[in-house]
Amino acid sequence: MTTTTTASTAPGLDAGPTPTSRLLDGSLAVAPLVYLAADTTYAVRGWDDASAGVLHVLGALGYALVVLAVAAWLPRTSRLAAWIVLTGVLGAGGNLAYGFDTIHMSLGDVPLVDQPGAANLIKPLGLFFPLSLVLVAVALERLGHRWQGALVLMATLAWPVAHIGDVAAVAVPVNVALVVALGSLLWGRRATGQRSSR
């Protein structure tokens, strides 16, 4: 008999929440909210604002936990989970670098993304971040969270348009969509955990 791991039977729920599962689950709400604050600050103050850069770095760290949270819901033998972890870690590196580059620019320095040679590393690493979110969307669909997966996918497809082109009118709605999609997963898991503990 074959069993399928779903959100309701994901590791950790039946045995009760652990400090690690609470941390990872909490990132589903915190990371998108912090990143929304970062992009809203960019929209108001410009794409070289130091405060936005700090929020950007914190949001990028939060999203590193988000990809680990979703990967942990998949079976341990899942190749998709391994790809989510790999792209998530690489993407976190790129995303963090872009945040630090903003702080760098706020001090009057030349943007790294405009430099040749070794500075070009920031660009391919940065592309792994939206790729990791595409894989997260696939995982959510497989786990039965279809509308959240679809919303994450749509937001992710618009992510490069918003952030490569520095288009605030796209960046802010993209982050609102991610707040709704990922935040709803947290409340759904809490409700499921409460039911299973009764």
Rank of each mutant, 00 (worst) to 15 (best):
T2A: 09
T5L: 11
T5F: 02
A7D: 00
S8N: 10
T9Q: 05
A10P: 08
A10F: 06
G12Y: 08
G12L: 12
L13R: 15
L13E: 04
L13S: 09
A15G: 15
G16M: 12
G16D: 08
P17Y: 10
T18M: 11
T20R: 15
S21R: 06
R22F: 11
R22N: 13
L23C: 12
L23A: 15
L24D: 13
D25H: 14
G26N: 09
G26R: 10
G26D: 09
S27E: 02
A31D: 07
A31E: 07
P32C: 05
Y35E: 02
L36W: 03
L36C: 02
A37Y: 02
D39A: 03
T41I: 04
Y42F: 14
G46R: 01
W47T: 01
D48A: 10
S51C: 01
S51A: 11
S51Y: 01
A52D: 01
G53N: 05
L55W: 04
L55Y: 07
V57Y: 13
G59C: 12
G59F: 14
A60E: 11
G62T: 07
G62C: 08
L65M: 15
V66C: 03
V66H: 04
L68I: 00
A71D: 06
A71C: 09
W73Y: 05
L74D: 01
P75N: 01
R76S: 13
S78E: 08
S78K: 09
R79F: 01
R79P: 07
A82V: 07
W83L: 15
T87K: 07
T87G: 07
G88V: 08
V89R: 06
L90D: 07
G91S: 13
A92S: 14
A92H: 10
G94C: 12
G94D: 06
L96H: 12
Y98H: 11
F100W: 14
T102P: 00
H104Y: 02
M105T: 09
L107H: 10
G108L: 06
V110Q: 06
P111D: 00
V113L: 10
P116D: 08
P116E: 05
A119P: 01
L121P: 00
P124V: 11
L125S: 09
F128I: 00
L131M: 14
L133H: 14
L133E: 12
V134N: 12
V138L: 15
V138A: 14
E141G: 13
R142F: 00
R142H: 03
W147E: 06
Q148M: 05
G149P: 14
G149H: 07
G149Y: 09
V152S: 06
L153V: 02
L153W: 03
A155M: 04
A155K: 04
L157N: 05
W159S: 09
P160L: 00
I164A: 15
G165M: 04
G165V: 06
A168M: 07
A168T: 03
A169K: 10
A171S: 15
A171C: 07
V174M: 12
V176M: 08
G183A: 00
S184Q: 02
R189M: 13
R190P: 00
A191E: 11
A191I: 08
T192P: 02
G193H: 05
S196C: 07
R198I: 02
